[in-house]
Design a protein around this nucleic acid. Structure first.
Lengths: 340, 340
DNA sequence: TTGTAGGCGTTATCAG
DNA sequence: CTGATAACGCCTACAA
C-alpha cells in the first residue's frame, strides 16, 4: 500500500542507466539523447518523482526556509505580519518556519540557535519583551556574525546591525494626540507599558511631543504605565476615575476597549465625555462598541517588506554590509470613539 | 569578521585526526581516549560547533519539522491551535512550519506537495473551504500513502483515513440552543455558512436537534446561510429585521458581534429583546459590548492533542494502521449577551 | 584507540 | 551521449 518516495537511484536501477544520467535527463539537459530523456521523464512522471528538498538543501547550502520569530501568535498584529511574510516568501519559493518566543528571552535564544544550525536561510523577528528587558542581544549578533541575514521588525534594537522595518510609532502617537487636542480635549491620558519596549517608548515620545507643541496651558503628562504585558483592569479603572481625563490614547487595542467599558460603566458618554484612540487597528477596534479610532500599523505590509529585504539579502551574492531601516507611516483610522 | 559555521571536517583537519574520531569524541564515545576527547571537545566548544541540522536530517530521514497547514492565520481560533502545536512540539524538539492555504484548494495542494518532499515528518492541518467545496482529497491521500503521518483538526473529512481532532460541534450548537430555549426564547435564529464546511454542517445539525427535542410548537428553522466566508452586513441586518427572532446563534464570533450592533441600532435591548450566542470564544467575545456568550472551541488544547498524536505516529516504529478521532467537549461560556 | 569506507539524495565536473 | 567520481555534513559498521 505504501508508495514510498522514489529517488534518482531507484529510477537509475530500474531503467539500467546511471544516476547522473537520470539527474540530467530530468533537468532536460542537452547532453542526453531525446530517447533516453523521454524514457526517464515518463518513468519519473509515472512514479511521481520529486527531488528531495533536504538533499538539495545540503548540496546548495540553501534551505529556502525563513525563520520567523515572534513573541506571540495569538495576537492580531503579529499574525498580519506573518501573513505578509508568507505572501511574499511563497512567491519566491520560500517556506516559513514560525517560532514563538512567548515573550521570553530564553526561548528566543533557544529557538534561534536551533534554527541557525542550517534549518533556515535567514531570520525575520520581533524582540520578545524579555529580551528588551534584559537588553542582551548576543544571540542576534552571533547569528549575523555567522552571515545569516536578519530583519528586525516592530520591536527592534539599535544594538544590532541589520535591516529593520518599523512604523513611525512616535508619529503615530503624535497624530493621535494632535487629533485629540484639535478636538478640544484638555486632559489627554496615555496608557502604555514599560519603556523597555521600544515601541511603547517611541509612542510615549510622540504623545509628549504633541502635548508640548500644542499644549494647552493646564496640560500635563497623564501617563499610566501598566506593570506587565497583561491588562490590569483595576489600574485602568482607577486611572479613569481619578485622573479626570477627557481623552485617552493607548498603546494597544485592549487597553482602549477595556477603558471604554470602564468609562461607560461610570456613566461617561463616548466620545462626548471622553474619547479614545488605540494602536493596532485590529478586529477589536472595528467591532468594538463604540468602534475604536486607532492607529493602523500596517502589519501585512511590514511583513511583505521584511520578507523582501530578507530574501534580497539571502540571494545577493556580495557581502553587502549596508543595512537600512524602513519606516512606514502609520495611519489614523477614525471611528466612533472620537467622532459621531 | 564572519565566523562561519564550523564542521566536523574543520575540526578534524585542525586537530589532525579523522572525521569519525571527532564525531565519536563529541558524542563522548567510549571508543575514544580521554585525552583525545577532551582536546576535541574543548576545541569544538571554543569554536561553538553545532551539528548541521540538514545533514542530520538527510542521514536520519527525520527532519524534526512539523508542517501545519491552516486556511488563515489572522484568525483567533487557528492561532490558538498553532500555539498549542508549538507548545507540545517544542517540548519534543520539533519545529513548526506554518503554511497558509488562504482558503484555496490550489494553494493547499501546492504547499503540501512542497513540504512533503522531505521537509517535514508529518502534517497537522485544517481543510480550506476551497477543498471542502471541491470535495477533492487526493493530495491528502497521496501524503498518507507515502507513509507521512497526518492529523486533521476542526475542519476534517471522512474521505481520508488519518487521526483527527475536533470538538463536538453538534453538541456545542445543541448546548447553546438548549440554553436559549430554556431562557424562554421562542424564535431562535441561526446564522451560518455553507454546509460544505464540515463544522457549519455539524453545528446546524446540533441546532436543529435541540429545536426538535425541546421545540416549542411555533418553533421553526430560522436559518441564514451566508454565501461566503466574508461577512455581509446587509444580509444580517435584513435577517434580524424580518425574521422577528428573539435569539440568534452564530457559527463564529463576527456574525454575532455584527448582529448585536445591528440589533442595538434597531433599538433592541440585549439580552432582553434578543440574545446572542456565538462560536469561538475569542477576544471579540470577551471584549464586545455587551460581552458575548459563546462556545469555546479549546483551540490550544486541540493543537496540543494534534501534535501529540502526530509525534506519536512519527516516532512509533510500527506501521500502525489504526486511526482515532478525538472529540473534545465544547464549553458554553456565559456572558452578558444572554444574562444580565 | 583511531581511521576507512560507504551511504543518506542530489548535482557538477570530468572522463569515456 | 553516458557514466564514474566527488562533494555537501554527518554517522556508523567495520578495519587496522
Amino acid at each position: 500500500m505504501l508508495k514510498k518516495k522514489i529517488t534518482l537511484k531507484h529510477i537509475a536501477r530500474e531503467l539500467e542507466v546511471s544516476i547522473s544520467t537520470v539527474s540530467k535527463a530530468l533537468k532536460n539537459s542537452e547532453e542526453i539523447s531525446r530517447e533516453t530523456k523521454e524514457k526517464i521523464q515518463a518513468f519519473a512522471k509515472l512514479y511521481n518523482y520529486k527531488p528531495n528538498n533536504i538533499a538539495i538543501s545540503l548540496k546548495n547550502k540553501r534551505t529556502k526556509n525563513i525563520g520567523v520569530v515572534i513573541p506571540d501568535i495569538v495576537h492580531h498584529f503579529f499574525t498580519t505580519v506573518v501573513r505578509g511574510v508568507e505572501k511574499y516568501a511563497n512567491t519566491k519559493g520560500y517556506n516559513v518556519i514560525v517560532c514563538l518566543s512567548d515573550e521570553s528571552f530564553d526561548k528566543e535564544v533557544i529557538n534561534m540557535e536551533l534554527l541557525a544550525n542550517g534549518s533556515i536561510d535567514g531570520f525575520i523577528m520581533s524582540l520578545s519583551s524579555g529580551t528588551q528587558k534584559e537588553n542582551d542581544y548576543n544571540h542576534l549578533k552571533e547569528v549575523t556574525e555567522q552571515g545569516i541575514p536578519l530583519v528586525l521588525f516592530d520591536r527592534i534594537t539599535n544594538e544590532v546591525e541589520c535591516d529593520k522595518v518599523i512604523i513611525d510609532d512616535a508619529m503615530g502617537a503624535y497624530l493621535a494626540t494632535k487629533k485629540l487636542i484639535e478636538q478640544g480635549r484638555k486632559r489627554i491620558g496615555l496608557i502604555t507599558t514599560h519603556d523597555y519596549l521600544s515601541v511603547s517608548k517611541a509612542r510615549t515620545t510622540g504623545y509628549q511631543k504633541a502635548l508640548k507643541e500644542f499644549g494647552v496651558s493646564e496640560q500635563q503628562d497623564l501617563i499610566l504605565k501598566m506593570p506587565s504585558m497583561e491588562m490590569d483592569g483595576q489600574l485602568i479603572e482607577n486611572f479613569i476615575k481619578n485622573s479626570k481625563v477627557d481623552a485617552i490614547l493607548t498603546v494597544n487595542e485592549i487597553f482602549s476597549i477595556y477603558g471604554m467599558q470602564v468609562a461607560q460603566d461610570l456613566g461617561l458618554k463616548i466620545p462626548d465625555d471622553i474619547s479614545f484612540i488605540g494602536f493596532t487597528d485590529g478586529l477589536l477596534s472595528k467591532y468594538a462598541n463604540p468602534s475604536l479610532t486607532s492607529i493602523a500599523q500596517h502589519g501585512e505590509r511590514m511583513g511583505e517588506i521584511s520578507a523582501e529585504m530578507l530574501i534580497q539579502k539571502i540571494e545577493s551574492e556580495e557581502e553587502e554590509e549596508t543595512y537600512q531601516t524602513k519606516i512606514l507611516e502609520p495611519t489614523l483610522i477614525e471611528r466612533n470613539s472620537t467622532i459621531n
